[in-house]
Amino acid sequence: MARYIAKRLLMAVFILWAVATIAFCLTFLSGDPATLMIGDHWTSEQIDAFREHMGYDRPLLVQYGDYLSGLTRGDLGVSVRQQVPVIDLIIERFPATLELTLAALFLIIFVSIPIGVLSAVRRNSPADRIAMSGALFAQSVPTFWLGIMLILVFGVWLRWLPVSGRGTFAHLLLPAITLATFSTARIARLVRSSMLDVLGQDYIRTARAIGLPNWRVYYVHALRNALIPVITMLGIEIGSLLGGALITETVFAWPGIGRLTLQAIQARDLPLVQGVITFGALMFVVVNLIVDLSYSLIDPRIRHE
């Protein structure tokens, strides 16, 4: 187990290095970073002075080395536009993204799993057909459209919920529903197929044969065994959600990591762009590492050798 963890940690470091390197290279792919970041009316002397100030006049390898050594110390540089350390900006936005992620996760789990189980247990029944058609629809609906429709219905027409922003619990509802919809549908379909697979196994037949009640068969024996692919998928979902939900946060003016990413790109704030990309990768790698390690807890047959 320890060896497995060490191996995974090494791989995580490698992935982070690769992402950080790509983020660094991207800075130079879209033209001269100094001219990208400056205002429309700067003179060439001002541009040169700015280039020197930012250190873009140094050899590329030196810049790369400084960038990597900064990363190892948790130093992601300083935002050009906001003039504060990138890491501070990320830490400041993270609670909003975490709040939205947890709310969405709550909805995903408590909606998708019951629907998936129901569909599997009552396979081909009208309830199954309605649930799976609904899931298909929810997966097909573009997030931005759904968000705008929810705003229109609950914010503008009914005036029940705030249109945008972050503050009260009411502000959280619409973005959480928007964010959760696609994943809920995907997980519900996955739970259904995974449950169907498990329900055909010998040990389920045995469980029924020894007279266990249905709920015990479904929730103790079947669901637990059906959860492995679901947890893998949830890990991917959480990893990407923690990296920032760009569209949902934008539609609802939610001040999280996703907005920070978009803001960084729009303002051509390259140190910030590099920072949020690296942070997103870090979240993804950490969550998936935890997911991998949790397999053995869910299914004792799995051992990391």
């Binding site: 931005f144 705008i148 705003i151 229109l152 914010g155 503008v156 005036r159 705030p162 249109v163 945008s164 922003g165 934008t250 539609v251 609802f252 003016a253 001040p255 907005r259 978009l262």
Partner: peptide
């Protein structure tokens, strides 16, 4: 001074008095 990047949301906020 609020930040609302999406134009549809800005319009909705205006219409609802936000």
């Amino acid at each position: 001074f609020r930040v609302i990047p999406e134009v549809s949301t800005r319009i909705a906020e205006l219409e609802t008095g936000g």
